[in-house]
Structures are given as C-alpha cells and as structure tokens.
C-alpha cells in the first residue's frame, strides 16, 4: 500500500487500482469531535478534486475532496451511526470511501507520508 496526502489533509491509500479515501489523523485532531459524516452513493463517478463527503464536527462542517478520480465502489457505513470512528482512527477504521482509480498518475504531486508529516509540522 502506498500512502498519499493532500494539502487539505485528505489521504488516498493506494492498493492496486483501489484508493481508500479519508481525512488524516492531523485533520481529525483539528476538527475535534466528529458528529456527522455525509458520504456519496456507491457508483458515483468523480473527478480528481471533486467534493465527495462532508465531515461535521461539533464546531463546523468541512468538505472532503478526493485526490484521485474514479468510481466509488464502497462507503464506510460505520460512520453513519458512529461518526466518532473518525476520531478513533482517521487513517484506519475511520476511512470514508473506496474508489476504483481511473488514472493512476493522479497520485503524482501528492505528498508521501514523510512529506505530509513535515507539512503539518510547519
């Protein structure tokens, strides 16, 4: 699995032609307690940079954009009843959606884990 991050604190973890999309651990920490996550329908086709989810904390709503284009093949339905799962493990159990990638080169230009860690430390 290769890990990629955007400057907006989304991640795309790639395995084969499947990307798992969510918000980074740093993002969940900044958001605070997550109380609602709105997920797309399975089958939705999205372009790189499209809004694909909304995460609401006690404080505010934030849009989540996909770093890669493709078709949504699975959503994490656990988040519907237990949105706090995002706080419990943003980069593990708290993933948002899985996308079947149409363009593998989308990940070029994204940060790898080391670069992202340095980015949030700034």
């Amino acid at each position: 699995m290769s890990k990629h991050y955007t400057e907006d604190h989304e991640y795309a973890f790639i395995e084969g032609d499947i990307a798992t999309i969510g918000v980074s651990n740093h993002a969940q920490d900044q958001l605070g307690d997550v109380v609602f996550v709105e997920l797309p329908e399975v089958g939705k086709v999205c372009e790189k940079g499209d809004e694909i989810a909304v995460v609401e904390s006690v404080k505010a709503a934030s849009e989540v954009y996909t770093a890669v284009a493709g078709e949504v093949i699975e959503v994490n339905s656990v988040l519907e009843d237990a949105p706090q799962t995002v706080n419990e493990g943003a980069e593990t159990v708290g993933w948002f959606i899985k996308i079947k990638i149409t363009n593998p080169s989308d990940v070029e230009g994204l940060m790898d884990e080391a670069a992202y860690t340095a980015f949030v430390a700034e």
Binding site: G32, D33, V35, S57, V58, K59
Partner: peptide, 12 residues
C-alpha cells in the same frame, strides 16, 4: 479559548 484538550463534546 474555544476548547481545551478535553474537547468540545467532553467539555459539554
């Protein structure tokens, strides 16, 4: 202060 380490939910 908008929140402390306890977090908004915990503080509430």
């Amino acid at each position: 202060p908008v929140q402390y380490p306890l977090g908004v939910l915990g503080e509430h």
